[in-house]
C-alpha cells in the first residue's frame, strides 16, 4: 500500500496545480483558470509566460496593444528547441492568422513554414502545416489557378506524419476540389483516404460515406458507388437522407443493369 501511495504526485505541487489551470482552460472555464493560476507557485518562468499568453487568448477579442505585447512575449519564448518554443511559434502564427483585426496571412504562412523547418517533428509544426494548407486553399490570392493551388496544398501532406492531422487536411483538399470544380477523379482519392482514417464525428462521417457514393456514381464508378450507398444504409439507420439514398441506389442498380456495371 505504501508503495502505491508514493506513486501519487505530491498534492499541491506546482506541476499538478498547473495541470489544474490547463484543465480549466481546456474546459472553457477561464475565470476558474485565472484564479487557479494565481495560486500556482514555483513555476518555471517560461511556462508562466506561456500560461499568461494562453490566459489572454481566453479573453477574445484581443486589442492592438495587447496583441503586440503577446507577440513580443511569444517571440521570446520561441527561442529554443523544446515543446514550449514550438508552441510559442505556433501561437505567434495564430496571432497573425486569426487574432489580428486584419489577418496577415502572408506573415502567418512564413511563421508556419519557419516552425516546420525548425521543429519538423513537433505536433505544433504538424498542426501549423494544416493551418497553412487551409490558408492556401481559400485565403491567399495566389496561385490564381485552382489546380496549382490544390497541388501546392497536396504537397504539404508529405510533411504531415500525424494521421489525424493528415486526415483533417485531406478532407479539406477534397472539399476545396469540389468548391473549385476540379475533376472528380482528383477529388475522390482525398475523400476516400480521409474516410478510411476514421475518427471523425458529427455529421461528417455520414456526409463522407454518402458523398463518396454519389460522387463515384457521377464519375461513372458504379461498383464503388453501390458499395458506399449500401454502407450508408447499413451504418446510418437514423439518417434523414435514407429515403434519398434508397432512391439513388435503386436508380443506380437499374442503370448498372442497363449499362452492364461500371
Amino acid at each position: 500500500m505504501q508503495a502505491g501511495v508514493s506513486c501519487i504526485p505530491a498534492v499541491g505541487s506546482a506541476a499538478s496545480e498547473l495541470a489544474e489551470v490547463w484543465n480549466y482552460v481546456a474546459n472553457s472555464q477561464p475565470v476558474e483558470a485565472r484564479s487557479a493560476l494565481r495560486l500556482v507557485e514555483l513555476i518555471d518562468s517560461r511556462e508562466r509566460a506561456l500560461a499568461d499568453v494562453i490566459m489572454a487568448l481566453t479573453r477574445l477579442p484581443i486589442t492592438g496593444d495587447r496583441l503586440r505585447a503577446l507577440d513580443l512575449s511569444l517571440t521570446g519564448l520561441a527561442v529554443g528547441s523544446d515543446d514550449i518554443s514550438a508552441q510559442a511559434l505556433y501561437l505567434r502564427a495564430r496571432l497573425h492568422q486569426v487574432h489580428l483585426a486584419s489577418p496577415n496571412y502572408a506573415r502567418a504562412g512564413e511563421l508556419y513554414r519557419e516552425l516546420a523547418k525548425r521543429h519538423p517533428a513537433s505536433h505544433w509544426a504538424q498542426l501549423g502545416l494544416v493551418k497553412l494548407g487551409l490558408i492556401a486553399l481559400y485565403a491567399l490570392t495566389e496561385p490564381v489557378d485552382a489546380a496549382d493551388r490544390l497541388a501546392e496544398v497536396t504537397a504539404l501532406l508529405d510533411a504531415i506524419t500525424e494521421p489525424a492531422l493528415r486526415r483533417d487536411l485531406q478532407i479539406q483538399i477534397g472539399w476545396a476540389g469540389l468548391f473549385y470544380d476540379r475533376p472528380l477523379d482528383e477529388v475522390l482519392p482525398h475523400l476516400i483516404a480521409a474516410e478510411r482514417e476514421g475518427g471523425l464525428f458529427g455529421l461528417i462521417p455520414e456526409d463522407l460515406v454518402l458523398q463518396i457514393g454519389e460522387l463515384s456514381q457521377r464519375a461513372g464508378n458504379f461498383e464503388q458507388a453501390r458499395s458506399y450507398f449500401e454502407r450508408f444504409l447499413r451504418e446510418y439507420p437514423v439518417s434523414l437522407r435514407r429515403y434519398s439514398v434508397e432512391q439513388r441506389l435503386l436508380e443506380l442498380v437499374r442503370r448498372m443493369k442497363v449499362e452492364g456495371g461500371s
Binding site: A15, L18, A19, V21, W22, N23, Y24, V25, A26, N27, S28, P30, A33, E47, L50, A51, V53, I54, M55, L57, T58, L60, D83, I84, Q87, L91, R94, V98, H99, H123, W124, L127
Partner: peptide, 22 residues
C-alpha cells in the same frame, strides 16, 4: 464559424500544456 473556431486556440494550447505535464 469563426466564433466557433477562435476560442479553441486557448483550449488547444491548454491541452498542449496538459500533454506536456501528463
Amino acid at each position: 464559424a469563426w466564433l466557433a473556431a477562435l476560442p479553441q486556440d486557448a483550449r488547444i494550447a491548454a491541452l498542449g500544456g496538459l500533454v506536456r505535464a501528463q
